[in-house]
Design a protein around this nucleic acid. Sequence first.
DNA 1: CGATGTGAACGCGTTCACAGCG
DNA 2: CGCTGTGAACGCGTTCACATCG
Lengths: 215, 215
Amino acid sequence: MRALEALEEKGVATVSSVELADQAGTTAAHVRKDLSAFGSFGTRGLGYPVVALLREVREILGLDRRWLVALVGAGRIGSALFAYPRFRERGFEIVAVFDADPAKVGGHIEGCEIQPSDQLETVLRDRGVEIAILAVPAHAAQEVADRAVAAGVRGLLNFAPVRLKVPAEVFVNDVNLAMELESLSHALRPRLSSGGANGGANAGPRPHRAPRRTL
Amino acid sequence: MRALEALEEKGVATVSSVELADQAGTTAAHVRKDLSAFGSFGTRGLGYPVVALLREVREILGLDRRWLVALVGAGRIGSALFAYPRFRERGFEIVAVFDADPAKVGGHIEGCEIQPSDQLETVLRDRGVEIAILAVPAHAAQEVADRAVAAGVRGLLNFAPVRLKVPAEVFVNDVNLAMELESLSHALRPRLSSGGANGGANAGPRPHRAPRRTL
DNA sequence: CGATGTGAACGCGTTCACAGCG
DNA sequence: CGCTGTGAACGCGTTCACATCG
């Protein structure tokens, strides 16, 4: 979708699966396969019509409507997310902000009043909020999730490093910022190069470069 | 690793692959297979020793050392990341903060002075920074990435919604917050059901039931 | 016995290769 | 002729099932 938006901006009329793949960092076959799962959007010999395909992709992604979102946790991350312009651009409207800290309640971020957590159920029900962003401490996440679900929320964007237990019909998307850096440290970590004084214990192709270990 | 940390905190001595899998939201076979790729850490009939395995996993993830990190972009997200305590807890130390905005330069976040972007190469080289967090606007991301790489950075945590072009030896980890919400809207988007009034009895990922379309 | 470690079977997403169509 | 759409082939991660060993 981002690639299509860029092409639309540039006024490009049609695009081939090869060009789309290059933009999106994938393969042409993959682009065609995935799109073909939803319909037949292209023209053989020509490519895909940018504007029409973009509209189609938006609909597939559920972005052809507004979504009411609640933000729970007005800490540093929560505040940053509230002001993140791309959410609103994509149709996600944060209509309520909650925090458990009485010192924060009544305060404002970007002109929106922070409400006490105990009003969560009422407000979410009344406004028909379907998605909640959890930017709360790990120990509070499960309780907030339970209450949000009880209030009718069907999707959770969870920034707390815990595995939430929710009913099967509720979708959870975890974002673990620490893990993102850990993934890098794993990739950058120096491997033990071969040739060490390993008593000849390594025969056959080893998966990782480090010698097999026993505790 | 998070599961093991919780077990260590509780003073549990050994843990089975089944218990670990439950905690981590995966399967016992998967836990055993993955661990066995790195070594033979368990005891048959008993399970895995929590403390020793935790140490081993930390090393595998490259978390048995400190990592010097630079933060580029002192906007809302950048500031939130700087103060995010879990980075430091895991050994990631943000030793420099940069911003292109002269109004921000010289200011402080959490006691750390914001430096002008044009000092990026010098500072990163001098301090031996290996990882950079990119919390800059999309249009600036590629240039910052290029300069960070030129200054010796080998890992990038990129919050800008662009696909960075970097040399093959540099690792990039993309975090796209808008996409995380879009993923939810896609999952929550109402499907055209094929007549069957399925009252919510669903298991697992649902197939795409929308009729095939043509533009 | 009980739980690990692991070859084998399985399933599934990816890639290939080409028929089909503008 | 060019590029889509797609069945088939492929590769690979997951899961199974059990030999193995404390």
